[in-house]
Amino acid sequence: MMAEKYIARSSAIAARLLGGEMMVMSTADSTFFTLNEVASAIWQAADGRTPLSEIVAGKICQEFDVDQEQAQRGAARFVDELSQHGILLVSDQPLTESSPSPESR
């Protein structure tokens, strides 16, 4: 069985929801990402406490009507890519800090 992954938004990012699309930029290297609806939902749920598998099963599969296995694979790829740019923090333990969700700004 795969170890649980916990994800948190890095504090070294700037993010903004504009025109229904989430834009995320690394403040360290100015890398710019646009997140689609599914990626945006994962991003906003990345509170450091909820396991990724639970985010996918409880939020992504419910809201977007996607196959769970396919959604888990897509989420893992998304998390890997953003973590490589330091935009998401990933751990096998709950993380204590996550930057505020842009929607609450």
């Binding site: 070294a12 903004r16 504009l18 025109g19 229904g20 699309e21 834009m23 403040t27 360290a28 646009t34």
Partner: peptide
């Protein structure tokens, strides 16, 4: 579109500081 507008604008803004 909004994303392209922001991206193109950011590409043209002058900014030099190494300050997150």
């Amino acid at each position: 579109g909004s994303v392209e507008a922001v991206q193109r604008l950011l590409r043209n803004i002058l900014f030099f500081a190494d300050d997150p």
